[in-house]
Amino acid sequence: MQNNSLTTEQIRALIAKGKLKDTIFKAMGVFCLALALLVIVLLVADMVIKGSERFTVDFFLNFASRRAAQAGILSAWVGSLLVMLVTAFAAVPIGVAAGVYLEEYAKRNWITEIIEINITNLAAVPSIVYGLLALGIFVYQFGFGQSILSAGLTLALLILPIVIVSTREAIRAIPAMIREGSMAVGATRWQTCRYHIIPYAMPGILTGVIIGLARAIGETAPIITIGALTFIAFLPPVPYTTGADGVTAGLFDWVMSPFTVMPIQIFNWTSRPDPAFEVNAAAAGFVLMAMVLSMNAVAIYLRYKMRKNIKW
C-alpha cells in the first residue's frame, strides 16, 4: 500500500499528463470534424458561386432546353417530388408493418433470424441491383413501363430496409413496462401496438423514413436503369384537368407518366459539350442539396415536436 501511495506532486503530474492526452484527443476530434465540415462548405460554396446566375424564378419554372440560359429544372424537381411521394406511400406502410411484426409478433425462431439477417443485408445491396430487379419486375412483368410508379416503387424497395430497421429500433427503445402495463389492464396485442407502441415509436420511425427518402432522392443508377428520360418538356397530368392535348386526366394518370428526376438532369448537364451548362448543373446540384437538407431538417423538427408530446 505504502509503495503505491503517491505524493501530491506525482498525482498532479499524472492528472496533468492525462489532461494533456485529453486535450490532444479533443483537438484531433475537432480537427477531423472541421475537415469534414470544410469539405461540405467548400462543395456548397462552389455550387452556389458557380450557379449563382441561375438562381432565378425562371430556373424553377422552365423546362430543359438546348440553350443553357433558358434551361430550367421544372420537370426534374416535379418528377423528383412525385417519385418521392410514391416511394413514401409504398415504403412507409409496408416498412412500418414489417418492423412492428418483427418486434411485437414474430416468434424467436430460425425463420425470423433469417429474415432479420436478410433485411440487414438488403440495406447493403448496391442500388443498381434494385434498378435491374425493378426493370424486370415493374417495367416489364407488371407492365408499369418507364413511369413514375416504377421509379417510386423501385426506390421504395431501396429504402424499405432503412424504414424497417429504424422502426424496430424505435420500438425497442420503448420501455417494456409500457407494453406490460397496457396488457395488464387487458389490452390485446393489437390495441397495445395501436395505442402505445406505434405512437411512441413515431418520432424514430419518421426520422428513419425521412432519412431513407433523403437517400432515395439523390439516387441516379436505379432510375437510369428503369429508363428515366433526359428530355421531357411537360409535366405529369394534374388529376381531373384537361391538358393541351385535349385528354382529361384521371385521378392516378400521373403515376404512369414519363418523367425525369434531379440527379439525371444534373448528370445530363455535366456531360454536354457547351460549358455553359456547367452553371446549370451547379445550380441544380445546390437545389438538390437544399431539398435533402430541408428533408433532414423536417425530420429533426418532427422528432422534437413528437417527443415533446409523449408523456409517460
Binding site: 410508379l149 385528354v247 384521371g250 385521378l251 404512369m256
Partner: peptide
C-alpha cells in the same frame, strides 16, 4: 396509414388500366 395503404393498392390497380395520353 390505412388510407395510404389503400391508396397504394388503388394506384396500382388504376394505373394498369389508365388510358395513356399520346406521347
Amino acid at each position: 396509414k390505412l388510407v395510404s395503404a389503400l391508396a397504394v393498392a388503388g394506384v396500382t390497380l388504376m394505373a394498369a388500366q389508365a388510358a395513356q395520353a399520346q406521347v
